[in-house]
């Protein structure tokens, strides 16, 4: 595959028999997933299939009721200490960016490093500027999120997550809220990140992205993992009829 840096054997994220209910509704059914350090996973599936819920469980934005989730050797339980530890290691990028509108781009980026990692401001700002350079918007640092385009905002959101030096990055449909001409600039940043060896879990329907960087593609439907394979096999030779149907629908265009 195309990632230069080797995948190590260290298990970064592990889900064992994870089950989740919203009230009476069974949203995640016996999810088992192992993600090694450096692996890039793309998760796709129809809306309501539970893919967003699954990755939101990994940094405990959602609570699961049964099973184990272990991130970087830390088990996610009710223990607030563990939740804090996990969130320090896991970065997340949202569909609607969720930048803080009352803070400048730079302030968005340095807030968590200063108050969570307790970095001196100068150092945090230096690091933030480097990362903003990496996502190619250092000149916007002093603007407010409202002044940027959607694509720029999403790149700031990526830089903001990277400022915490995460070991794993979660992407929750990062390009779905973007205009077509902006999708590429965000995907370029994500591809670059993948090439640098970041462990990534992406919920996305960008099949081109899946083909270029993914080590595995996971298809979810009805709250469970229906099929899991390396991208070539997944697209050329889907095993399950639900997968075939889904792929035929999204690849039509």
């Amino acid at each position: 595959m195309s990632n230069p840096q080797a995948v190590t054997d260290h298990l970064m994220v592990e889900l064992r028999d994870v089950n989740k209910w919203y009230g009476e509704f069974h949203v995640l059914k016996n999810i088992n997933l192992q993600v090694k350090q450096g692996e890039k996973i793309v998760i796709c599936g129809p809306s309501g299939s539970g893919k967003s819920t699954m990755i939101r469980c990994i940094n405990r934005l959602e609570e699961h009721q049964k099973g184990d989730i272990i991130v970087n050797d830390v088990p996610l339980t009710e223990d607030l200490k563990n939740i804090e530890l996990v969130r320090k290691d896991v970065g997340m990028v949202f569909q609607h960016f969720n930048l803080f509108p009352h803070l400048t781009v730079l302030e968005n980026c340095v807030l968590a490093p200063i108050w969570v990692k307790k970095l001196p401001r100068k150092e945090a700002e230096k690091q933030a500027m480097e990362l903003l350079e990496r996502v190619k918007i250092p000149d916007q640092a002093l603007k407010y999120p409202g002044q940027l385009s959607g694509g720029q905002q999403q790149r700031v959101a990526i830089a903001r997550s990277l400022c915490m030096n995460p070991d794993v990055m979660l992407f929750d449909e990062p390009t779905s809220a973007l205009d077509p001409e902006m999708i590429k600039e965000v995907l370029d940043v994500m591809v670059e990140l993948a090439h640098e060896g970041m462990t990534m879990l992406c919920v996305t329907h960008e099949m081109g992205f899946a083909k270029t960087v993914a080590d595995r593609v996971i298809f979810m439907d009805g709250g469970q993992i229906v099929e899991e394979n390396e991208p070539h096999e997944f697209f050329e030779n889907p095993q399950h009829e639900r997968t075939q149907l889904f792929l035929s629908q999204i690849l039509q265009h």
Binding site: E84, N98, F100
Partner: peptide
């Protein structure tokens, strides 16, 4: 919006902060 508090949680900011 709920997304604001979620984003802050995802960055590891504790509730008080």
């Amino acid at each position: 919006s709920h997304g604001q508090t979620e984003a802050a949680s995802a960055l590891g900011l504790p509730k008080a902060k």
